[in-house]
Design a binder for these strands. Structure first.
Length: 356
DNA sequence: CCATGTGTTGAA
DNA sequence: TCAACACATGGG
């Protein structure tokens, strides 16, 4: 695949974007702009210093995207004075999309991105908010790994399939009525220590978590976190200390969430008939919880269309699943002419380069 | 050999 | 923070 020859086949994962209707892609500039530019000289005009294999690499118009010597594109994001490499991509916009994903994971929903408003896609596009939920449900390292391996869109789809509730949970502030807040507790050093237990203030325990009347030794209680993950804790009463505690399973939660003394855990319960319990943690001031911050929960609703920065992933997945076994992975935005734009742009660049 | 991704620097 | 640029280097 010498630089340009890569027509269709390749197609790495894409995080493409082609919000043809909504957000017009960043304006191209290159030679089109000024028009006044003397470009397009006759054949014998001065030779364009940048032949195809020239030195000067074309800089990307996308944030976080850098050209690679081989004509491909790299994506990177900076954090704490250090670069985090997000991988290389055939298509410039794939790299741009990768950056966007990382930006959301590293800097939150308000991060400046290349393509979409993603989150704010209120009504029509809940898929975008679902995607944000997915991103936040993974650690930075996991997100980076998925991007580098070009498995992001696959993982996203899988996640959306098994966690529709979680996905819906990220819908936004419109349905917080779906659950009621029970109480919060600032965890103590011992709550996050090696004791593997969380003491639940008696007052709240007796009000919201009455132990089974029968006096079952220790019942297992399920809680769902902001990422849609279900946690089962053993809930019991320790007569020795006359306290209610969550034991088995608790240390795992502490570890995964990176919970530290002083952080708070909040408990909620669905207002619906399911009375599902929820748990989420909140950091004092530092980064968010390992499993994503707190997310308002909403009613479960089926995921019909899954779009990733403008590309219909579900459809793409179905159409591309056939060739998902060999080396190549991911699919291209088959259907619409979404990819056309990007590819066309790429070709144009090559043509321009060769023309000189 | 070559694509990748790091070292590094200057600009913003 | 960010990207341009050089190039070490490790996988094939």
């Amino acid at each position: 695949m010498d630089s340009t020859s890569t027509n269709d086949s390749s197609s790495t994962s894409d995080v493409a974007a082609a919000p043809a209707t909504l957000q017009p892609p960043p304006p191209l500039q290159r030679m089109g702009s000024g028009a006044s530019a003397v470009i397009d000289p006759s054949p014998l005009a001065e030779p364009d210093v940048e032949a195809e294999s020239s030195r000067k690499l074309p800089s990307s118009r996308y944030k976080g995207v850098v050209p690679q010597p081989n004509g491909r594109w790299g994506a990177q994001i900076y954090e704490k004075h250090q670069r985090v490499w997000l991988g290389t991509f055939n298509l410039e916009r794939d790299a741009a999309g990768a950056y966007d994903v990382a930006a959301h994971r590293f800097r939150g929903r308000d991060a400046a991105t290349n393509f979409p408003p993603l989150f704010s896609a209120g009504d029509g596009d809940e898929a975008a908010t679902h995607e944000l939920g997915f991103i936040l449900s993974r650690s930075k390292a996991e997100v980076v790994d998925m991007l580098r391996k070009h498995t992001y869109s696959d993982e996203l789809q899988q996640w959306l399939r098994r966690s529709p509730a979680a996905a819906a949970a990220t819908s936004g502030a419109d349905q917080k009525a779906a659950r009621e807040h029970l109480f919060d507790k600032a965890v103590t050093p011992s709550d996050v220590g090696k004791l593997n237990r969380l003491v639940i203030p008696k007052q709240h325990a007796e009000k919201h978590f009455p132990l089974a009347a029968g006096g079952v030794p220790g019942e297992l209680v399920s809680f769902e976190d902001g990422g849609g993950k279900v946690w089962r804790f053993r809930y019991s009463y320790w007569s020795s200390s006359q306290s209610y505690v969550l034991t088995k399973g608790w240390s795992r939660f502490v570890k995964e969430k990176g919970l530290k003394a002083g952080d708070a855990v909040g408990f909620y319960r669905s207002k619906g008939s399911d009375r599902q319990l929820y748990i989420e943690c909140r950091k004092g001031t530092t980064a968010g919880c390992g499993g994503g911050g707190f997310l308002p929960l909403a009613a479960v609703d089926p995921v019909k269309v899954v779009r990733l920065f403008g590309v219909d992933l579900v459809k793409a997945a179905v159409e591309g699943s056939a060739l998902n076994d060999n080396g190549k992975r991911r699919t291209e935005g088959t259907e619409a002419a979404a990819p056309a734009a990007g590819v066309g742009w790429l070709k144009k660049q090559c043509i321009v380069a060769l023309a000189g």
